[in-house]
């Protein structure tokens, strides 16, 4: 039985509200007394995922589930998908536009940074359909 289960919609190319879901998730976990180290890792990965949804998808959602032993964060989108996941995971590789770079993003660090901060990381993508990323953060 999970302690908390919430969904947060994320709109494509909306840089005004980008990051609001992550900020809300961080606040919720803080209020529930989750370990600050876990919150820190999750907040970074969550923000990376949210920015990716804004930049690369046609819209998607973040799904948060807090359990006694872990926090699961799923990012799911409808969009172009990722043709070569290994290439997308390599640091520095990015398909972001110059407009996105002007906003301070698109350095090609996102997916690798998500994997680095999560205890368990899984990514599945279908070209022309979308991408699903599942991250689990263990609560020690």
């Amino acid at each position: 039985m999970s302690i908390l289960k919430e969904e947060f919609p994320v709109a494509a190319m909306d840089f005004v509200t980008a990051g609001e879901a992550s900020a809300q998730i961080k606040r919720m976990l803080k209020k529930l007394g989750v370990d600050p180290g876990v919150i820190r890792r999750l907040a970074i990965a969550c923000y990376e995922a949210e920015i990716n949804l804004v930049i690369h998808s046609d819209g998607g959602k973040l799904m948060l589930e807090l359990n006694p032993d872990n926090v699961t964060l799923i990012s799911e989108d409808v969009g172009p998908g990722i043709p070569d996941i290994d290439l997308a995971m390599s640091e520095g590789y990015s398909t972001a536009s110059d407009d996105v770079r002007m906003m301070g993003f698109g350095a090609g660090m996102g997916l690798a940074n998500m994997a680095r901060n999560a205890d368990h990381f899984n990514i599945e993508s279908i070209v022309g359909e979308g991408t699903k990323i599942e991250m689990v953060f263990d609560i020690k």
């Binding site: 990051g19 900020a23 961080k26 820190r40 907040a43 923000y47 906003m103 301070g104």
Partner: peptide
Amino acid sequence: LVNHQVMRTCDMLD
């Protein structure tokens, strides 16, 4: 970088 994502990033990273 002068946009508000700077502050959002700071918020995420404390």
